[in-house]
Computed example of a mutant assay.
Amino acid sequence: MITDSVLLLSPRVNETGLQLRTAAGRRGLRVHTAAGWRAPEELLGAAVHVYGGPLFGDAVGGAFGLALLEPPADWLTGLPPELTHRSVSLVTLAEARALRRPMFLKPPADKLFAAKVYPDGTGLPGPDALDDDTPVLASEVVRFRREYRLFVLDGEVRSASRYAVDGDLDAAPLAEDGHRAEVAAFAADVLAASAAALPSAAVIDVGLVDSGPAGGGRWAVVEANAAWASGGYACDPDAVLDVVLRSGGPAGVLAPGDGRFCRALPEVVG
């Protein structure tokens, strides 16, 4: 049995995973890349922290006694209108299938179906694929001109990155973006209004909503996600690692108040 700390990466290592591996090595933290979608037996007894998608978290979380923090499914719906600038509701998949107007539809956390604008609900997975009571975030369609990712720890933005312009991937550190002061100011407003409703480590995406022919724009929250399953884009890898370690680590060192944000882990058989 081993007792050291280790960062466990999923078999599908993305660019952020590679950056986290380098950042972890600089601080002497051991890194292990899983060979498959199960808990590596050689790590049993270690203080494991995980970085990977929801399926990987579910596959290894129980075996390692992890507390995988994620924002509540209804977090976005509880924000004041001045922070969202669109109607957002949490509905069941059955209710979403009955929609007959364009809506942006996505699962709150897991990638159970594509997150995108649907002309109506008929294009969603049927009851033979997903249960009727599967939660769905349904949002009024808006156009985000610019989008930014914020890695948040203990109510403070530790690093931020632009990740899209007019819907196309365009990553850059926030320090190099002309809207950095506006992003920072809006992030402060969001955290002041909602930090208590989030786990101590999380990711928040914000963006500039197109105001139409009149020009200009309004800052709005896009969504919130689990840091242990989120890409870092052009964020500082060392800061991202700090947030990831808190968001996906041993339940025995859970920060006060984070218990209600732990992902419900399935029982893994075999």
Rank of each mutant, 00 (worst) to 15 (best):
A63D: 14
L76W: 02
E95A: 15
H49Y: 05
G52F: 04
V91M: 14
P40C: 06
G78W: 02
G121I: 04
A24L: 07
Y118K: 07
A39Q: 09
S139F: 00
A138S: 13
S87V: 15
T16S: 09
L79C: 08
G36A: 15
K111Q: 13
A23H: 04
R27I: 14
L90M: 06
A129L: 14
P108W: 03
D132L: 08
G17Y: 02
F64V: 05
L9T: 01
R26C: 07
R30V: 02
V136K: 07
D74Q: 07
R12E: 15
P54R: 11
L68F: 01
A114H: 13
P108V: 01
L83R: 05
Y51P: 00
L68H: 02
V117G: 07
A138V: 03
E41V: 13
P135F: 07
L99Q: 10
R27H: 11
G28H: 05
D128C: 04
H32W: 08
P11G: 05
R38W: 15
R100Q: 14
G123Y: 05
A109D: 13
D131N: 09
L99G: 04
R30A: 15
D132S: 12
G61I: 10
P125D: 09
D132R: 10
A39C: 04
G78V: 00
R101H: 09
E70R: 14
T33E: 14
R86I: 01
R38T: 13
L43T: 07
V136N: 06
L9N: 01
L105W: 00
G126A: 15
F113S: 08
R30L: 11
H85V: 00
E70L: 14
P125I: 09
R97A: 09
G53V: 02
P72V: 12
R86C: 02
V60A: 11
R101T: 13
T77H: 08
T77N: 08
S89W: 02
D128K: 12
G57V: 05
V141Q: 10
L112T: 07
G78K: 13
G57M: 08
A46I: 01
P11T: 06
T92Q: 09
G25P: 01
K111T: 10
R38C: 14
T22V: 14
A46M: 04
A94Y: 01
E95T: 11
D128W: 06
V13T: 10
D128M: 08
Y118N: 05
A47N: 10
P80H: 10
